[in-house]
């Protein structure tokens, strides 16, 4: 599960960068950078890191 959390986090951060730069256009209504999509994926990436933190806390306990 810890490796899954890392993969999800890295994947989300990569998607966030691609949307921010406007390279990725999937699910968008107009061409160009999509900051809202980038922010959402950035936040989900951070949440995946929080999930990783909880996995580490649980394994220590």
């Amino acid at each position: 599960m810890r490796s899954l959390a890392v993969v999800v986090a890295l994947g989300c951060f990569a998607l966030a960068v691609l949307y921010w730069l406007g390279t990725l256009q999937f699910g968008t209504s107009h061409p160009g950078p999509h900051h809202l999509h980038a922010i959402v994926f950035g936040v989900i990436g951070i949440l995946a890191l929080v999930w990783l933190r909880f996995q580490s806390g649980a394994s220590r306990a």
Binding site: G27, T28, H34, L36, H37, V40, V43, I44, L47
Partner: peptide
């Protein structure tokens, strides 16, 4: 989280 994803992809 699911609402945020649905919002950005489905609203338009």
């Amino acid at each position: 989280v699911p609402l945020a994803l649905a919002g950005v992809f489905l609203e338009s």
